[in-house]
Computed example of a mutant assay.
Amino acid sequence: MAQGIFRHLVAEAGLTGRFTIDSAGTGGWHEGEPPDRRSIATAKSHGIDISGQRAHRICSSDLGISILAMGRDNVAALETIASPEATIRLFGDIALGTGEDIPDPYYGGPAGFELVYTRLLTGCSSLLEALGTERASCSGNTSSVR
């Protein structure tokens, strides 16, 4: 959902050409598959279409950019494979300022997906505000890892 939310906010702000936005997993369990149907439904209820997204595993070409991981376990996994110049940060630190992990709502009900949507929207909005101000004249790269 983070990819779709951030892409939507960037488009609304008229900044589409300034960012490369992608989402990748640290594992390849769902490669090629669309997001969970509940993620699609939650995003759609807020006017965001993520149905065209497909899961893929993070690869070495992704590791030289700024990466925002959704959980500490992802940060740890990425730090073992990333190049020294990669910037890996926890989404909860950089976008929310809370240090929280974004929970995986997979095993819960609709309320969990709505909670994750709300946290991601809050964080993505803050992130865009910060990046739009800091990088008004250059291009930025943002990636989320679930």
Rank of each mutant, 00 (worst) to 15 (best):
C59S: 09
A69D: 04
R57C: 13
T16H: 13
A43Q: 02
V75A: 02
M70F: 03
G28H: 08
W29V: 04
R57N: 05
S23V: 01
A11Y: 07
A24V: 13
S51P: 03
L9H: 09
E12A: 13
I40G: 03
R37A: 04
S83R: 14
E31K: 03
G47F: 04
D22M: 12
D73N: 04
T26L: 08
A55Y: 07
T20Y: 14
A82C: 13
G28L: 03
D49M: 00
G25Q: 10
I81C: 15
M70T: 06
H30A: 14
G27N: 11
L9F: 11
R54N: 09
V75Q: 00
I65Q: 06
I81N: 09
S45L: 11
K44H: 06
I21H: 06
C59T: 10
G32P: 11
A82N: 06
A76K: 12
D49G: 00
R18N: 15
L78D: 15
I65D: 10
I58T: 04
A86N: 08
V75H: 07
G25S: 14
S23K: 04
A13K: 08
L68A: 03
L78R: 09
I21N: 04
A77C: 08
I67C: 08
G17W: 09
G17Y: 03
G27S: 15
Q53V: 11
G71P: 02
L63P: 04
G71W: 05
H8K: 06
A82R: 10
I81H: 11
T80S: 14
G17R: 05
P84H: 15
H8Y: 05
A41D: 14
S23P: 04
P35G: 00
G14I: 14
I50V: 14
A43H: 00
A86K: 04
